[in-house]
Every structure is written in C-alpha cells, then in structure tokens.
C-alpha cells in the first residue's frame, strides 16, 4: 500500500500542487487536505506547502498557524508523524511553536529568487534520511541545489536557541556560497528534537523532475536534488 502524504491547502497557498507532484514522483499518494477542517483523512505524513497564506497578514504564517487543521497537525506531530514545512509552511511551524525561532523580512529588504546551494547537515530526520550518502557527497557532507524564493526568510532566534540548535544537531539545512536573507548562522532549515518535524525556506518540490529543476553541470534544468527529501518520508513509513 502506498504511503499517503497529506498536503494542506490554505487560502493563499501556492505550491501545494507542486508538493503533491513531488510525492507522486517518489511513489507516494498525495492527499489534498483543507485548512478549514479538523480532518487529516488518515494520512501517514503531512506537508505544509509554500505560498502566502492570508496574504502574510499579521506575520507570515501567523494566521494559518491558528487554522482548525493546525490543531490536528500539532497533535499528530507530537505523536511522531512526519511533518514538513516548506517556506510559508516553515513560517507556520515556527508560529505554531512546533519549531523554535522565527522568520523575519530578508535583511536586504527585497524578495529573492535563486537556485540555492545547501548543505544537508543532518541526515537522520524523517525528511532527510535518503540524503545519507546520496546526491553529490563531498567529504561526508551532502550538498544540494534547490530553488529558493522568499521575502521573509531571515531565520532568527535567541543566542541560547541558536546554541542549542547547533549543539544538538537540529540544524538540517545550511546555506552555502551566499546567505540569501540574513539568516543567523546561515540556517536554511531546522528540525525538532524527535526529528519528525522539519522546516526549511528553500523549495525541494521545485527540484524533482528533469527539465523543470535548477541547472546542473550535466544539463539545463536537470536538477532533482529535492527528490530524496520526499523519498525519505516514504522510506521511513514503509514497513520494513
């Protein structure tokens, strides 16, 4: 039986269908979920997609984090269900306190859209296990390139929180080459202590199909470095 991955659509979600396609490409069954219900439809994992829920009113992700379905997402996360927040979804996870820290406007004040190199710092989470030894492994560290597009992607947290994230290996993705938004310690994505909840600003779902991904040295738009992220959750959930 295929693993069922729920993708929640909020008013103003943008990349829900891209995330669904990514799930389908790795052999999972994407299940559309609606923000206004308390129904998780029995899914095995949840993705909070990118976009501009509620027009980023109040703070990015703040109003969505209070949606009816988010109370179900929070309790599912506490029982260990894999939950992934991409971009606006990461902002929701921070606002819902499922992940520490916060996301503020980019330090340079403008929206940024680029293919971004990242280092996968932690390959033991529910969403990154398939990166272990995968893609372009350089000296034990896995480096990937996936698109990044945000206006409020600056990760910030108190000095104590940053020290704890670094000390306990909860930094999952780190920006390489350039820091595109002023994030502290070049942090692009983090996880909770259990490793089932992961949030990141860049968009793995936009690098899953040759012809539509970032450029690589092999060919234009051939990058599919986002695929292992979705494959990780499926592998973790399939019975051995």
């Amino acid at each position: 039986m295929a693993v069922r991955v729920g993708i929640v659509t909020f008013p103003g979600s943008l990349d829900d269908r891209d995330a669904a396609r990514a799930v389908r490409l790795v052999g999972g069954t994407p299940v559309p979920l609606w923000h206004g219900t308390h129904d998780l439809d029995g899914v095995d994992a949840i993705i909070l997609p990118g976009g501009f829920s509620y027009g980023d009113y109040l703070r990015a992700g703040a109003i969505a984090s209070l949606s009816p379905i988010m109370s179900e997402v929070i309790s599912a996360a506490s029982t260990g269900m894999p939950v992934l927040g991409i971009c606006n979804g990461f902002q929701m996870l921070a606002e819902a306190h499922l992940l520490p820290g916060g996301l503020i406007r980019n330090d340079h004040g403008t929206f940024v859209c680029r293919d971004q190199r990242l280092r996968v710092e932690n390959t033991t989470t529910a969403w990154t296990s398939a990166y272990a030894g995968a893609v372009s492994s350089v000296a034990g560290a896995t480096e990937i390139t996936i698109p990044l597009k945000n206006g409020e992607g600056g990760f910030i947290a108190s000095a104590d929180t940053i020290a704890r994230l670094e000390g306990e290996g909860h930094v999952v993705f780190r920006y390489l080459d350039v820091n595109p938004n002023g994030s502290m310690n070049d942090i692009a994505g983090i996880t909770n202590a259990r490793g089932n909840v992961v949030g990141l600003m860049p968009h793995p779902e936009h690098a899953v199909e040759p012809g539509f991904g970032p450029d690589t040295t092999d060919a234009m738009r051939s990058g599919t470095d986002g695929l292992p992220l979705f494959a990780s959750a499926l592998t973790a959930l399939l019975p051995a």
């Binding site: 109040l58 703070r59 703040a62 209070l66 921070a94 606002e95 520490p100 820290g101 916060g102 503020i104 910030i156 947290a157 108190s158």
Partner: peptide, 8 residues
C-alpha cells in the same frame, strides 16, 4: 500570544 510573536 497572537498579536505579537515574542521571538521576534
């Protein structure tokens, strides 16, 4: 709780 995010 809501109007401000005390983290930021």
């Amino acid at each position: 709780e809501l109007l401000a995010n005390l983290v930021i």
